[in-house]
Computed example of a mutant assay.
Amino acid sequence: MKHETSAQEVLEPVDDGAAAHLPGSSIPDVSLISTDGEAVSLSAIEGRWVLYIYPRTGRPGVPSLEGWDMIPGARGCTPQSCSFRDHHAELRALGAKVFGLSAQSPEEQCEARERLKLPYQLLSDDGLKLKEALGLPTFVAAGLELYKRMSMVIEDGRIVKVFYPVHPPEKDAETVVGWLSGRA
């Protein structure tokens, strides 16, 4: 009997080693448009910050991409974003700014930020600039190249911790808070 994936089930991704080269890397001089309409130069962000990366958020009433539920690690972008929203005060108390990033357009990012009431900026990398600069892992769905889910802690322009693959997505921020708390 063929197994059908329910809307609530998330297929677990495996660590394919595609992010192993990132710890210790410097953040490149890449500028991305944020949900406030400003260009954010990643290499100019000072101090400690968290960049969580996700494939794409869905929109109510709009069907998912064909085959989306069968791609390990694809489902869960909204719960991941909401987890960072819900743990935002803790992350700020640990000295970390938060940014979310996907390959979605600035308009799609703005819609998601407003709908989910996110207290931090989302960044649009619809040109996959960070993929090119850092060698970030991606996958293709319905002809679109999208980022694989991951989170990074950056301190003074250097990646100090990478969480990859992220599973389950709704626990991502909690995991990051736990790791940062251990460094405090």
Score class of each variant (00 low, 15 high):
residue 107 E to C: 02
residue 136 L to V: 07
residue 102 S to M: 06
residue 140 V to P: 01
residue 106 P to E: 08
residue 141 A to K: 13
residue 110 C to L: 15
residue 101 L to E: 06
residue 75 R to C: 03
residue 71 I to Q: 01
residue 71 I to H: 02
residue 134 L to H: 02
residue 74 A to F: 09
residue 69 D to E: 06
residue 95 G to P: 10
residue 100 G to S: 02
residue 99 F to P: 02
residue 118 L to W: 12
residue 135 G to E: 11
residue 111 E to Q: 12
residue 120 Y to C: 05
residue 121 Q to K: 15
residue 142 A to H: 04
residue 73 G to Y: 01
residue 140 V to N: 10
residue 108 E to G: 12
residue 107 E to A: 15
residue 110 C to A: 15
residue 79 P to A: 03
residue 134 L to A: 05
residue 139 F to R: 12
residue 84 F to N: 08
residue 121 Q to N: 12
residue 97 K to N: 04
residue 117 K to A: 15
residue 95 G to D: 09
residue 114 E to D: 15
residue 97 K to M: 09
residue 118 L to G: 12
residue 68 W to R: 00
residue 85 R to G: 05
residue 123 L to G: 07
residue 114 E to H: 13
residue 126 D to F: 13
residue 73 G to V: 03
residue 127 G to D: 14
residue 79 P to N: 10
residue 142 A to M: 02
residue 67 G to E: 03
residue 121 Q to C: 09
residue 94 L to G: 11
residue 122 L to N: 08
residue 104 Q to I: 11
residue 97 K to C: 00
residue 133 A to R: 10
residue 119 P to Y: 08
residue 142 A to P: 00
residue 139 F to N: 11
residue 136 L to F: 11
residue 138 T to R: 08
residue 134 L to E: 02
residue 137 P to V: 07
residue 140 V to Q: 11
residue 139 F to S: 11
residue 97 K to W: 00
residue 68 W to S: 13
residue 68 W to Q: 03
residue 86 D to S: 04
residue 70 M to Y: 12
residue 96 A to R: 10
residue 131 K to N: 07
residue 125 D to W: 04
residue 90 E to D: 15
residue 99 F to T: 02
residue 78 T to G: 13
residue 103 A to F: 03
residue 92 R to E: 15
residue 89 A to D: 15
residue 142 A to G: 06
residue 124 S to V: 09
residue 69 D to H: 06
residue 107 E to V: 14
residue 102 S to K: 06
residue 108 E to R: 12
residue 71 I to C: 01
residue 85 R to A: 01
residue 78 T to M: 01
residue 98 V to T: 11
residue 114 E to S: 14
residue 118 L to N: 09
